[in-house]
Design a binder for these strands. Structure first.
Length: 215
DNA sequence: TAGTGACC
DNA sequence: AAGT
């Protein structure tokens, strides 16, 4: 009997999504306590808020940012801003270990030059969703996207380069990391309405960290 | 920032 | 419109 089976944390494993896109299962699991502590400190400086879309609707996902730049949306459009519109101050700094985790994940996925300067923090209450969209507000589209899932499971919608392409449904669990770039950089993606569930660390919510090289 | 396509 |  191998006692180690019960004491060794799970090794991360990798699942290809499409050319240029990879799911790194459990990649962040060993660091989630630390990530959550960092998020709590960031949120104390830059609280979650429900932003408006250019169409005038309020997003169901609550957002904040850390890093040199933060992604924002309002009636005027989508963009990156070096300041938090709520405070007029710079976004909280990106913790060094957040950045290292994102860079290590990018390296594993074949993007050794990733220099993230933006970390969008999305909080999904039960029922929150994100419609299919492309991440296209970044300056250098050769840099990948790194997405870290925390809390209750979600269904990631992974589409193609055309909005009309059928999206695959990919379950994303606490600690999973998705990296996409290259041929997949402009793939449409989203999140299905969050189903009610309980997570030991996060209760009824999901938090997603999206690392980007924005500037 | 709109123009689409899906659609009940 | 990262919306319904």
């Amino acid at each position: 009997m191998n006692v180690d089976l019960f004491n060794t944390p799970p090794e991360p494993w990798t699942e290809p999504l499409s050319p240029g896109a990879l799911v790194l299962r459990q990649y962040a699991t060993a660091h989630t306590d630390h990530l959550l502590a960092g998020i709590h400190a960031i949120v104390a400086q830059a609280p979650f808020r429900h932003m408006q879309t250019p169409g005038g609707y309020t997003m169901s996902v609550a957002m904040t940012n850390c890093g040199t730049a933060g992604w924002i949306t309002d009636r005027k459009g989508y963009r990156y801003s070096t300041t938090d519109p709520l405070s007029g101050q710079a976004w909280p700094a990106m913790p060094a270990d957040f950045r290292r985790l994102a860079q290590a994940a990018a390296l594993t996925a074949g993007f050794p030059a990733f220099q993230p300067d933006a970390c969008l923090i999305n909080r999904y209450p039960v029922g929150a969703k994100m419609a299919l969209h492309q991440d296209r507000d970044e300056r250098d589209l050769t840099a990948p996207i790194v997405s870290v899932s925390l809390g209750v499971p979600a269904t990631f919608l992974w589409g193609g380069l055309q909005r009309s392409d059928k999206a695959a449904k990919v379950p994303l669990l606490h600690g999973d990391v998705v990296v996409w770039g290259g041929a997949a950089r402009l793939a449409f993606h989203g999140i299905a309405p969050l189903k009610a569930a309980q997570h030991p660390l996060l209760g009824e919510e999901r938090i997603n960290l999206t690392f980007r090289q924005a500037l």
